[in-house]
């Protein structure tokens, strides 16, 4: 069983001090640390688990600048077979449709059963590349997968719905499956894997003009400060009581 895993290099923003660049369309990258998008890491692990069970090749595909090779090499160190990096002239000029079109252009002739992507990218939060890719390729797709049982010709997947509901689907290959965090436990790249990754190929292609852009990023910005947080005053008992009231009113207790 062959699979393709789409991964994205994103900045770690949770604890970083963010600054917007002067063109208002991107972050200042100087003091940011970049890593593989979290959901994509789970998507990669899902492909590795399938490879362990069924054998076959894993091809990594990523759209990004040269520095993306760092996360691609880690994916190769974990056990992926080979990789394709599509180099855009400017990441900020790409929308999800353009990214999906670029990927489709590279993978349509490959021999694959499943294309895995993370369900959402932590930087732009679009959740669109996976499903758009499936539509362009004309294959089935399942989004937000939280459990997966793969067979030779198809897979049974579970999706998590609101209100504690789950939904179960059957999907035939070839298909795009977008993966939620928590579906598995991503492995560490082994040190032997690091050694082996150095001899694996990363094929670099220039992005072609697919003319597919649908939305244009106007600017990114910090929203103006909103309503201040409510500070609960008083002794421990009073604070506890008031906190419980608030949680109850929100249906959380």
């Amino acid at each position: 069983m062959n699979s393709i895993v789409c991964i994205k290099r994103v900045p770690e923003t949770a604890e970083a001090t963010l600054k917007i660049a002067s063109d208002n369309r991107r972050l200042e990258e100087e003091n940011l640390v970049f890593a593989i998008n979290e959901a994509d890491n789970y998507a990669l692990e899902q492909a590795l688990l399938l490879q362990e069970e069924f054998g076959g090749d894993i091809t990594i595909v990523s759209v990004g600048p040269e520095k993306t090779d760092e996360i691609i090499r880690m994916a190769l160190a974990k056990g992926a077979t080979s990789a394709i990096r599509i180099t855009p002239t400017d990441m900020a000029e790409l929308d999800p449709f353009a990214v999906a079109s670029l990927i489709a252009n590279e993978v349509e002739d490959l021999d694959y059963d499943i294309i895995f992507t993370g369900c959402v990218a932590s930087d732009d939060g679009f959740s669109q590349v996976g499903v758009t890719l499936a539509e362009i390729l004309g294959i089935e797709h399942i989004s937000m997968t939280i459990e997966m049982e793969a067979g030779e010709d198809g897979a049974t997947v579970n999706r998590e719905l609101e209100g504690g509901l789950m939904a179960k689907y059957d999907v035939k290959y070839p298909a795009v499956v977008t993966i939620q965090t928590g579906i598995n436990e991503p492995r560490y790249a082994s040190i032997l894997g690091i050694k082996r990754a150095s001899s694996k190929e990363i094929r670099v292609v220039d992005s072609v003009d697919i003319g597919g852009k649908r939305v244009n990023l106007e600017k990114i910005y910090f929203p103006p400060p909103g309503k201040m947080a409510e500070i609960i005053e008083g002794g421990p008992d009073a604070v506890a009581e008031k906190t419980c009231e608030i949680l109850k009113s929100k249906g959380l207790l």
């Binding site: 760092e70 090499r73 880690m74 160190a77 560490y188 790249a189 082994s190 040190i191 690091i194 050694k195 990754a197 150095s198």
Partner: peptide
Amino acid sequence: PDDAVMMRNTVREFAEG
């Protein structure tokens, strides 16, 4: 070299986790 960069990434992740 690339292998040392990858070593730092993977061992840091392991040490933290």
